[in-house]
Write a protein that binds this DNA or RNA. Sequence first.
DNA 1: TCTCGTAGCGAAAATGGGCC
DNA 2: GGCCCATTTTCGCTACGAGA
Length: 322
Amino acid sequence: MLPAFVPPMLAVTGELPADDAGWAFEPKWDGVRVVACLGGGELSLWSRVGNLVTASYPELSVLTGLVGVPAVLDGEVVAFDPEGRPDFGLLQQRMHLTKAVDVRRARRDVQVTYVVFDLLQLDGHDTTGLPLRDRRELLEQLELRADGKVQVPGYVTGNGREVYDATKRLGLEGVVAKRLESVYRPGKRSDAWVKVKHVDSRDVLVAGWLPGEGRRAGTVGAVVLALPDGHGGLRHVGQVGTGFSDQVLDQLYAMFTAEEVADSPLRGQLDPAAERSVHWVPPTRVAEVVHTGWTRDNRLRAAVWRGLRPDLDATQVDPDGR
DNA sequence: TCTCGTAGCGAAAATGGGCC
DNA sequence: GGCCCATTTTCGCTACGAGA
């Protein structure tokens, strides 16, 4: 009998705990959250919001041979780059495939690994009421290892700062701190799990803006960002659409509409439909954003607005944005 | 058959409203 | 006041239908 989907517990974003005691630290895996339900020789894989994704990752059928009793596992499907780092861009080539022929083709270039970090049911027993410490012990007793397709990475107790620094050196996304005594709360965001991400702060130039929709109709939806290209021009480095308060949006809207210009400083660098929607401003204002890295086409990944930098002028912005 | 546009889904963060 | 949930935005990708 195949167990039913259990919605995964979610972490809050925050800082490392001030006191390491009672916390477990593990790397933050840059992949997609997947709950695996096993039983009767069958497997179902579910996304965070309860969509069935079994067909997208046929190689994970090895799980059925690893656990002798019905079980529900929580983990992350990850694609590793040749250096062994999780690469979300690679994984995106697999995420939405549903047809067997497409999945077969994509598997030649991108293999995935299921990184298991929690156990929610075992042999018909609900384990979510157990402390994390006990759930992990049961999980490790299952000895889930399969030829690079399944991993159960260990965790570190204490030394959260060391784990954080190590993940930064290794190019990982960050760490997750989990209270060892915490129970698993299905579908809930809990401060018993705290994700601490590595973020970079950069100074960038404001080149234009896109109108908002819905609640943000009549104000700014996103700000178009640029950096000097080192040859007297500018290169587009993406947009930022989050991190603003309503007050800041109103200020930016008033500022931008008063300065609008017809000419694009980034001609030909955005796709034509997007370029038609942009309202351009002179690229003289400097803003600070934080982001989690760069996409393959040299755009800022997951950029969050921090504010304008009136103390800086455009000539002080480094082509690397530092 | 190919291209283009749209929709949907994955990730994330911030805000505001409702409720206790 | 704090928590939870809904809603908004971003990017990157695939699926699919329409039209050339």
